[in-house]
């Protein structure tokens, strides 16, 4: 080994460094090493902050709800059909709020899923490059509109139109709120579903066209099933948005907790209740104050369920191409 080294040194006459000690040029750079560790730590801190926040929220929700459930039995909470925690004759049944949330969300999704999916198919498979360049940014602009604007759009524009068709419709109703919420969600669904469809490789489309398929057949029979996992992800995000949406329903759906699944009636959702109570000045640790957290916990559980469901569906149909 030594002889080989000697040979090398001889050949490259300028270098004579011995191999027995670490050359200073290759020695561990302590300063650089330290810097790397510091950067790593800062990056980790940023990532952990999100995790910590989530855990903190869950902890507070659980803690305050615990106080709530000391006064109110869980059975009443889930079975009573009245939610009147601030009344003299207080009832603590969460179901009217859950019903309101599910009804407005269902109306929103009935609007957003078909329109969003069709928009995604159009943008990904039919629109020319120029049309896509124009339409997509406009669609995404909708995301930037504050939700309170959508709320008053529902109350002052959509509701009067609906009342012309259906005169018995009350001023506050879940139909109008749901429809506008659906419009609000369309860009989310369209944009994410379109990304998923565009990610389907061209070779798969070519395979379909080569079989004599039309553009529509290719879009519906090949591209959509190939992108189904991304499309489902878009729907799940849409559902979570609808369930958690606050301002539109608080403004346009009314704030009266009513146990009904009829969208032509007004009703409060979980979020509408929370915002309504949180704006008043309730004493800390009162039952009314604690009821916010119990409602929040239910909302959190609902979104979690949808997210888990979405995760399962996505895993089952993950892209394979």
């Amino acid at each position: 080994m030594m002889s080989a080294t000697n040979k090398v040194s001889k050949n490259s006459s300028s270098t004579t460094a011995s191999l027995t000690t670490v050359s200073p040029r290759l020695a561990k750079n302590v300063q650089r090493h330290f810097k790397e560790r510091v950067i790593e730590f800062i990056l980790m801190l940023a990532a952990l902050s999100a995790v910590f926040t989530t855990f903190a929220i869950v902890a507070i929700l659980l803690y305050e709800s615990l106080g709530f459930f000391k006064t109110v039995s869980i059975v009443e909470f889930f079975t009573s059909k009245e939610w009147t925690p601030l009344f003299e004759d207080a009832h603590y049944g969460i179901m009217p709020l859950v019903a309101g949330t599910l009804t407005t969300s269902a109306v929103a999704l009935a609007v957003a899923i078909p329109v969003g999916t069709i928009a995604a198919i159009y943008l990904s498979e039919f629109a020319s490059h120029r049309a896509r360049e124009i339409v997509k940014p406009i669609l995404e602009l909708l995301v930037g509109v504050p939700t309170i604007v959508f709320g008053y759009f529902a109350l002052l524009f959509v509701t009067p139109i609906l009342q012309k068709i259906y005169p018995e419709l009350p001023g506050f109703n879940m139909l109008s709120a749901g429809i506008v919420m659906g419009i609000m969600i369309i860009p989310y669904i369209a944009s994410i579903a379109e990304d998923a469809m565009r990610a389907v490789p061209m070779s798969m489309r070519e395979g379909s066209y080569a079989m004599g398929a039309t553009r529509f057949q290719t879009a519906i029979r090949v591209v959509t099933p190939a992108a189904v996992s991304g499309i489902v992800a878009a729907y799940i995000l849409g559902i979570s948005r609808a369930v958690g949406e606050t301002m539109v329903v608080a403004v346009a759906a009314g704030q009266q907790p009513t146990f009904t699944f009829d969208p032509t009636e007004g009703a409060a959702t979980i979020t509408a209740y929370i915002v309504q109570v949180a704006m008043g000045d309730l004493p800390h640790a009162s039952i009314g104050y604690q009821s916010i957290f119990a409602a929040g916990l239910v909302l959190f559980a609902m979104t979690l369920c949808f997210n888990i469901l979405g995760h399962i569906v996505r895993k089952k149909y993950r892209e394979q191409y």
Binding site: P201, E206, S208, Y209, A210, M211, G212, V222, P225, Y321
Partner: peptide, 15 residues
């Protein structure tokens, strides 16, 4: 394309 079919370089079965 209905009378002239094609097989591609990489197998491209549909999902």
């Amino acid at each position: 394309r209905m009378r002239i079919s094609m097989v591609f370089q990489k197998p491209n079965p549909f999902p």
